[in-house]
Amino acid sequence: MATTTRSPSRARTLGAYAPMLVLLLLAGLAVEEGLRLLLTIDPAAQADMAGWYILVLGVVLAATTAYSERPSVTEGTGEDAPGDSDDAARPATPYRDMTICLLLVAAYAALLATLGYVLAGVVVVFVFLHVISRYGWIKSTVYTLVMNAVFIALFELSGVVLPAGILRF
């Protein structure tokens, strides 16, 4: 019982601190890089200005983040996008769909270089339609074929050069 109540609150706490931690990490990396350029690079390379620039930016980012991104300050500042209202049909599994969507973008990057843009498009569109949009096999297949035919026509007509992959002939 105790674990089931603690987990969501721990996740909420982590979520509240996440922006602050990410920005502080970026600030820390900038300070580290700035110091590296200032202290370890031969002055003849004239990297001191490059070092000072990101060192100062890192310090400013750390200071502004520590001041304005504490969870107590940021509570309730999330913005509602237009169209956000009660009449929007809430998806059943939003985070699963979002994760799959991100995986599809990553898959598109991987497949574009290997299989080419036609097959990469077919895979991404079909999986999106079938898994995220939950369309049946036939509907997903028909939509995939139509959409990719339009993509090919558009990219060919507009002269966009994309990797042909294994369909190169």
Binding site: C101, L104, V105, Y108, A109, A110, L112, A113, Y117, A120, G121, V124, V125, F128, L129, I132, S133, R134, Y135, Y143, M147, F151, F155, V160, V161, L162
Partner: peptide, 23 residues
């Protein structure tokens, strides 16, 4: 949106790629 989503994703992927022809 189930139909528009994949169109946007593919366009985004192609747009990002064409900027410098880089995966």
């Amino acid at each position: 949106y189930g139909v528009l989503g994949p169109i946007i994703i593919v366009c985004c992927g192609v747009g990002a790629y064409t900027a410098r022809n880089s995966v």
